[in-house]
Design a protein around this nucleic acid. Sequence first.
DNA 1: GGGCAGCGCAC
DNA 2: GTGCGC
DNA 3: GCCC
Length: 310
Amino acid sequence: MWHLYEDVLGDQWRSLIYRKTVNKLRSLPYKVTSVEQIREMYGVGKSLVKMVKEILGTGQLQKLDNLKAQVGEIQVLGSVWGIGAIQARELYKKGFRTVKDLENYSSLTSMQRMGVKYYDDINLRIPRDEVADTEKFVRGVVETLAPGAWVNAAGSYRRGKPTCGDVDILITHPDGSRFTSLRCCTHSSHLHLLCSHQDLLARLGGTQPDMFMGIFHFQGKPYRRIDIKVYPRHVYAFALLAFTGNDVLNRKIRFLARVKFGYKLSDQGLFIRESKKKDVWFTESIPCETEREIFEKLGLDYPEPHDRNW
DNA sequence: GGGCAGCGCAC
DNA sequence: GTGCGC
DNA sequence: GCCC
């Protein structure tokens, strides 16, 4: 159901709630058999209790069935990388019904074109061994460009998941002076070293050469979504934290940082909010060399990456 | 009724 | 400025 | 959707 709200209805907040609730209930040590078990849960309100009640009683959810019928073929359009809820509706209005229909449509963005072309492959899960191999391979290439650089696969791989949806690689160099030469590893001229077919590597990201979002083809495996981001050493811990996630944990920490300390936490640092009358600005980041330091500054216990799944 | 993180990029 | 993905 |  949360996919429906994400891909078609464009309601990210409902989507988030549904996703959180499903995982919350799933992670309970017992199977939910009665609404009494969830009625008091934080974040579970009237509507959700009602839905769970219906599911327990009838084994299905009318609201979901209605939505499915209503939404029909729009959902698959919205599940393409680069096509959101609004464009999905537009395309549907124009008569497109399947991903195949979009193959020869000229008015797609470059991201959408990639999303269409590799739709089936992108939707496959990636075994973590393959992510490890990819990380190793990228590390090897980066080493030739900037010896001594750090290369880490983040995302669900770092959280220990057995399979991943994409590959998320972070790069820095402990020697700040080498940072400039390091940034060039996201230039497509170098990135094509990572691919057997360089024409597939449509690079996104304009002026700043420190991020790559694209498609990666490796050792005859399916085409994979990959992000490669290069950060300066002094913000690396923040980037690692942000891109290890998961996103619900990020929201939680950022919320706490703001409410409890007046901080702003992002992949770029931990900033103190300063205000004078109406003006609000932020100081330079509080330095943290490791993720552990960030959690310390926020008065939190350090969670190992595999404990950051919800 | 507003906030729910906040950003950079393509267009 | 909007849509999108992260 | 939930919480305030």
